[in-house]
Nucleic acid binder design. Structure first.
Lengths: 288, 288
DNA sequence: GGGAATATGAAATAATAATTCCAATCCATA
DNA sequence: TATGGATTGGAATTATTATTTCATATTCCC
């Protein structure tokens, strides 16, 4: 009976996500001006974190007192404690991209737990994506897609660490109804498989140091038959590069001895979908 | 003759990097207490951004007046304007990551070229990594690793879109000399393969909506034999979740109809390497 | 349409925080 | 070691900012 709001009401949201959820939840039932400041808060969280009650109120087009009522309605005892939540968010969202990576990597290297391992792989993947995004050569991409789009059958060649990428390419090509053939080693019939390839086909070959000898050998064999190769590899000294018509240099970061595949995956998907689009377009053109 | 400091001195550093450089540059020539607060500022920039002059001074072990002198020595007219620089830094930092993603995604959606496709996949991968990094449940990770580390043989079960992850897990487990078996569908001997599994083994199963019927069916069969399952899937309604001892919810962003695998890959690698570490540790303990 | 409950605006007040000032201390140099 | 200048500590002062209060407006329900 004598329990007041603060005691009987829900707990005060202590982190931004909870706060956000609470606000969205109550949106309908809030008075006009309070709703106005609520919307402003979610749209401009940085302003709430740094501004003064007066400046924020002015930007949102309300009175400072309304801002304080808003905070109280959420269970805080004033604007200041509401603001803390917005500031905490900025601290934790520790996130210049680079700094977040550094933090992740530091945690991964310093920390001992399994979470640290996970962070390490996330950091490696992010770094790789970042790198390739900066360095990818657009003309190479166009060239590779043109080349592959003309192929009757696309052969996909990769072993060991790169094999997952090959299977994903094969999956995606299949989905897009593009004829393709994964050169697998299980049955030992690779040589025969390669013998079917003609210069009207094309190959996507993927290999990173230490280059799987089988990949190199098969790439050589297939290039000698005049089949054009698009290679994804990690340096210009790669043996794959010398057989390739077009090749991409992808630097993958590693963690705990395992390199990320994220950049290679992104490139592989871009090639695949790019070929799909190109075929659709030229199909349309031919009909038109 | 009548030119005062503010007029004749160097420009006031307006951005954090310049400020940082300025401080580092003068480090040697600063008086003791000022140097103390300078070091503190570079080490704890967030505290400067959010704290009050008094609280910061206390943390750094100096008087508030020293803090103000420090600001003035750098050319600011007081602590407040120095603080602005630290706040600005946080603002820009935050937006940079999100804005970069937004920019990428905008280019990907707006742009027509093949580069746009590539950007789309990079953005999808980054988003996924970001999400999983926030949402991953650490206790699940520990539970899953413990469970898998005890297994005699780890079975890996995934089809179609998830298959690349399975092959990478199998590759990595092999590298770490952990006995494992990829449940492949090629030869149609899956049922027999599953029949070898015992409760002393464990399974990593991966499936996303639309769930490959074979994966679900095999997961059911193997769980009925009492073999514990660690599942990676995309929602609590996933049929995989009901068979699993531990399961992870991974939300992958998609682009052009193909979902990213980057988050799943990172998690898969963390599990794999985590198991490797756990086994090494307990092996050591047993010997000791 | 009238009246109570609720919401809002604006200014007064209280709290908090930045800045200044001055005495005390430290340090280099003669 | 004495002396002047620079540096520092701590309290007084000033400025800024949050909060409260109260009068007014709006809304909702009977």
């Amino acid at each position: 009976m004598s329990l007041d709001r603060a005691t009987m009401d829900e707990r005060v949201p202590r982190d931004f996500e909870t706060l956000r959820a609470t606000i969205l939840d109550r949106r309908e039932s809030l008075p006009k001006r309070i709703a106005q400041i609520a919307a402003y808060a979610l749209d401009n969280p940085d302003d709430i974190a740094f501004g003064t009650a007066a400046s924020i109120a002015a930007s949102a087009g309300v009175q400072p007192s309304t801002l304080i009522r808003f905070a109280q309605q959420l269970g805080f005892d004033g604007f200041t404690s509401l603001q803390q939540v917005f500031r905490e968010r900025l601290r934790e969202r520790n996130s210049s991209y680079d700094e977040r990576l550094l933090a992740l990597r530091a945690k991964a290297e310093g920390g001992a737990g399994h979470r640290a391992i996970f962070d390490g792989f996330v950091a490696a993947a992010s770094t790789s994506l970042n790198d390739i995004s900066r360095t990818l050569d657009e003309t190479h991409l166009e060239d590779a897609i043109s080349l592959l789009a003309k192929a009757e059958t696309i052969y996909v060649l990769a072993k060991r660490r790169s094999y997952p990428v090959a299977t994903y390419i094969a999956y995606a090509l299949g989905k897009l109804k593009i004829r393709n053939q994964l050169i697998e080693s299980a049955a030992g019939l690779n040589a025969e498989m390669i013998a079917f390839a003609t210069p009207a086909d094309a190959v996507i070959a993927i290999s990173f140091s230490p280059y799987a000898p089988a990949t190199i050998e098969e790439a050589r064999a297939i290039s000698e038959r005049g089949v054009p190769i698009v290679a994804i590899t990690d340096s210009s000294f790669s043996p794959l590069a010398q057989f390739a018509r077009v090749w991409f240099e992808v630097a993958e970061a590693d963690f705990a001895g395992f390199r990320s595949l994220s950049a290679t995956m992104a490139l592989a998907m871009a090639l695949t979908v790019g070929v799909g689009e190109k075929r659709r377009d030229s199909g349309r053109k031919r009909k038109a």
